Amino acid sequence: MSELDLDTFKPESAKELADGIIVQLAFILGTEWKKYKKEITQHVKVVAQRAFETRTLLAAGKITPSQADFELHGQEYYLNNIVLFSSFIPYVIAQKMMDAVFSVINAAIENWTGIDLLYGSRSASVAAPAP
């Protein structure tokens, strides 16, 4: 599995965004992803749908970057509760999941709007696991 190109990722739908997130999760987590894919995929789709709606509103100028940032923090809180407080995912893996999901979402929003909601943190994204 190869890494998603965050510099050019510009999904046209929530489904494309969710698919991109899943590609990145598979890359970042490697073989660990197989253990958690079934449990996490539906939650990723929910977060992708809300993030895509946020991107659309931000691109149309209907919300401010601060409002978009607030909305994404809400989605992060939602996913955080699912991932970090579940008994089936170790903390280190959960944090890698969170970092991967929101780096993809931020890249998609930034590539559409030019607004970096993670304030430059993309350059500090999670490295792939050692083979």
Rank of each mutant, 00 (worst) to 15 (best):
K38H: 05
L17W: 07
V23I: 12
F88C: 12
T64H: 08
Q67P: 03
L25W: 06
M97A: 00
G20N: 08
K62R: 15
T31N: 15
K45E: 05
K38N: 08
S13Y: 02
S86W: 09
A60S: 11
G120R: 05
Q42M: 14
A48E: 04
V47F: 08
L118P: 04
Y91N: 13
T31E: 13
T113C: 05
T8E: 04
A14D: 06
K62H: 10
E76S: 13
H43R: 01
V47G: 00
D69F: 06
A18P: 03
A26K: 14
K38M: 09
E110N: 13
G114V: 06
L6S: 01
P129I: 15
Q24D: 04
I89A: 11
D69V: 10
S123H: 13
E39F: 01
Q75A: 05
A107Y: 04
L17K: 03
A26Q: 13
L58A: 00
E76Q: 12
A48T: 08
F88D: 10
I105R: 00
I93W: 09
G114S: 05
D5N: 14
G61R: 09
I21Y: 08
K34G: 15
A60E: 03
N111H: 06
P131I: 11
H43S: 03
S13N: 02
V23E: 10
